[in-house]
Nucleic acid binder design. Structure first.
Lengths: 230, 230
DNA sequence: CCTACCGATCGGTAGG
DNA sequence: CCTACCGATCGGTAGG
């Protein structure tokens, strides 16, 4: 009888890597998930410990004990949101080759996420509005997350220029700025003004930005023939 | 002795147009001004009757009596903000000729206002983030204001196309969307991320949008020679 | 336009 | 992780 078929030893400890996190951390993680969901609806500033406690089925002070301050719960929400954003938007593009493919995939993933967030809300955008005038640890966590993401986007654009996919004189900061504007306008007009055409306009705007900076195949001044248009 | 030099008759009523508003309306207007200033800092949702009362030097219920509900105070703030926005951004361009001059002036005035609001905050942008998920009269007032402004911007762009200042196939909705994105990115990156370079990038982005749609003087496909570049 | 108050909710604490 | 509580603040009301 092979070892695999032995009845499980009830006293056996799982491998360290497989060991489930202690109960306290499991609970804490569950609280953060609920808090993140609530925060996308009512904002980080509108997030209250009491509302979180009610949803998770705990007492207010039970939730509180895991964080010690509301601010710590808010920061945990920001970090979890960034983790999800990174995993969904940024991580997948590392499988692609450097250059335009990564830039296009970053925008595409970002668009997909924001399109979903037309229903649920984006912590970075609502958080920026809530905390642009309010110093503190929550604002610091938001700024750090957003800057990390922007740096990743800028790096991908610079790599596309280095790979010869963009004109040698392309202003990468400017491109990142304009791309960010498209995303913000999409979020504003689709979510706040209920204009479904905003998704198409954001995609169209991205093509405008690319075609303006795409490396030309002919002499300078000729109509650009971007490699993505093949 | 001309009539104009007669001593004022103390019992004379001023003309109807010069008659100062009754005391109650003066007080109400003063409250709205204070509330608008507070709302740019803490948001429409963070606006509390108590805080307004303290600044204007009245009791909480004294302020309350002028509006009957906090929601009515919030709506009054939105209307007053729109009035100022209209007067500062939109009204001056009516003195210019239709077409590109008005579009450029609208963007320039809008930029000037947002550049100032890097310090103080913009009710339309923060309000959109606060109320994009919250139905009600405040959201309705915000949406109505923003849509009115967008319609005015779109109209100016369409007139520029009709005047031959833009290509006949220019997508005016698309231009308005991209311009809006520049303003939002400026607000986000300058106010939230403290990046002073955002103003230049927004202006540069506007030139990109114009040059893409500017009427060409040569045959189609030639480099555009926009009239604004003279 | 005021004083005085209501019930609800907030973040946080004490003590277990 | 709980019950029981604190002081502060909220929007709003009563009555003048």
């Amino acid at each position: 009888m092979p070892t695999a078929e032995l009845p499980p030893k009830t006293f056996a400890l799982p491998d360290a890597q497989e060991r489930p996190p202690p109960k306290g951390q499991q609970t804490r993680a569950a609280i953060v998930q609920v808090a993140l969901r609530l925060a996308t609806q009512v904002g980080l500033e509108g997030l209250s410990i009491g509302a979180v406690a009610e949803v998770v089925g705990m007492s207010k002070s039970g939730v509180f004990a895991h964080f010690g301050a509301r601010e710590e719960l808010q920061i945990s929400v920001v970090r979890e949101y960034f983790r999800q954003f990174e995993q969904e938007v940024f991580a997948p593009v590392l499988a692609l080759e450097r250059g335009l493919p990564r830039v296009q995939a970053l925008f595409s993933n970002w668009m997909d996420r924001v399109a979903r967030e037309i229903q649920s809300g984006c912590i970075f955008i609502s958080g920026a509005a809530e905390f642009d005038d309010r110093p503190g640890a929550v604002r610091d966590a938001l700024v750090a997350s957003v800057k990390t993401w922007f740096a990743a986007l800028l790096r991908a654009i610079v790599q596309a220029r280095e790979a010869g996919h963009l004109r040698a004189d392309a202003d990468c900061q400017q491109m990142a700025f304009e791309i960010h504007g498209l995303i913000l306008a999409l979020h504003f007009e689709a979510r706040f003004l209920d204009d479904p055409g905003a998704i198409d306009r954001a995609n169209k705007g991205f093509l405008h930005i690319l075609s303006r900076h795409a490396a030309a195949v002919g002499p300078p001044g000729a109509a650009p023939t971007p490699p993505y248009a093949g």
